[in-house]
Design a binder for these strands. Structure first.
Lengths: 253, 253
DNA sequence: ACCTCAAGTATTAAATAATAATACATACAA
DNA sequence: TTGTATGTATTATTATTTAATACTTGAGGT
């Protein structure tokens, strides 16, 4: 896949990035040969890239196992990202306020292609690890946050997304019927919020409201997670919709 | 600075990384010429690297201003980092517990060379933006967390660090006298904790305890921040040391 | 203790792919 | 409009990466 008829494209750099992206939640430390198989690059290419990334402080290397791991530099990049995105600075104090006042898990989600990505998370319960750390990507159509953002778009865009964007069956109860997802988005447009249940995690209720820009389109949403053991959807809306909308209203999209 | 007599070193990749690292808290969006001046690379090199990084989804490009910004991919890398570091998974539930029980800002800090880096942060008050987001690096000697980690090392290492590691005068009251810093570290070794005040921020008290590995050395520490307006250091120790030590005790270094 | 094999490391000739120089285009200001 | 700064495009040259291969190390099995 050495692509492009593009004389500005530096394939060596792309290969190096490929090494970085070989790491994910189920590949936390990789040997040279692991990297070869995961990236599809030549052994010697991997050798040189990994070597360089190590020297440059982007990869940690365990001297015993000789396996590579992400370094702290990866967190530093996140730090730079946070400063670069103005929505973050606007949202963070509001989320802290909400978390403090309501004691519930609250997240900031942004649209990233056909996925959402969680950019801020303030967990208030012990919950699954993946649900507590930033940077997680989920198919937009599967999530309340994704649907509520889509609901601010034109009918055509919604239809296009519902037809083509990925849907992932995460739990037995995950909604995979695209027509039903479209209904959910239509409802969200009416209501100004979206609520889901058991979509990514069983017994988890998600309530989300959009952060609209001046054009009325939302690239950001705030989402809260509530355990469905104690309460049902109606009660969640009853109790948390108002504070949630207060929160989103204070954020500059 | 095209360095190395190293035939495995891929300088093109290093140049690309240099572009990424040109972004930080005071350089949130950079034009081509900005990148040239910040990296010291040739104009055409920057052109090709930025172009490639954009195509690979590592840089966002504003079509109007033609400036580059970090992309969501930078958060995804943080996500991979979190999974790769076992301390994180062990610490996160404990920090959440503490935050929930005590309602105070709590952070996980790790030693990264001669700096500490905050890898988890659970802010519970409105506080300065930089104090709320992960990935921030601070000189280890300036911080309670850095000192308490150092205090688990040998006398020689402590002496070496106190002599050579960087110290940054962040507030008028920041301790810059290296002998006094050494005293602070000695005290931390005795006490099993370190408390500071007004070091990075005025009217901020920092209390930190180490997370020791099986060898007794700490590469990680937990730190809490308390406003010094309402309470003094003794009261902070009185009130929070016990729960803090309970927290660190539950974390596998 | 020895052997085997897989995994990591080192070396090189060959040529691809990146470079640097320069020319062109566009946007903004005087 | 003209001038200047910034971004974009093109190309010959060659430095740099490549890919192939040989060497080294270490873990597991017998």
């Amino acid at each position: 896949m050495e692509k492009k008829q593009d004389n500005l494209y530096v394939s060596t750099l792309a290969r190096g990035l490929k090494i970085l992206r070989a790491f994910d939640e189920s590949h936390v430390s990789l040997s040279l040969t692991d990297l070869v198989s995961r990236t599809g690059l030549e052994k010697s290419a991997v050798q040189r890239m990994a070597h360089t990334l190590h020297l440059e402080g982007m990869l940690e290397r365990d001297p015993n196992t000789r396996r590579f791991r992400p370094s702290h530099a990866w967190l530093q990049l996140a730090y730079a990202y946070y400063w670069s995105d103005p929505v973050i600075a606007s949202a963070l104090p509001k989320l802290i306020e909400f978390s403090h006042a309501n004691g519930e898990t609250i997240n900031l989600a942004q649209l990233s292609g056909d996925h959402i990505i969680y950019s801020l998370r303030l967990p208030n319960h012990r919950t699954h690890f993946a649900s507590s750390i930033v940077g997680r990507r989920l198919p937009a159509l599967n999530t309340a946050a994704g649907r509520v953002m889509l609901s601010t778009r034109s009918d055509d865009e919604i239809a296009e997304a519902c037809a083509n964007w990925p849907v992932l069956q995460q739990t037995p109860k995950t909604l995979t019927d695209r027509a039903e997802i479209a209904n959910s988005i239509r409802a969200a447009r009416q209501d100004g919020f979206c609520i889901t249940r058991d979509q990514m995690l069983l017994n988890e209720i998600s309530l989300s409201a959009p952060v609209k820009g001046t054009d009325g389109i939302a690239h950001t949403a705030v989402q809260i997670s509530i355990s469905a053991i104690a309460v049902n959807e109606d009660e969640v809306v009853e109790k948390f919709l108002r504070p949630l909308l207060d929160t989103t209203a204070g954020i500059l999209g």
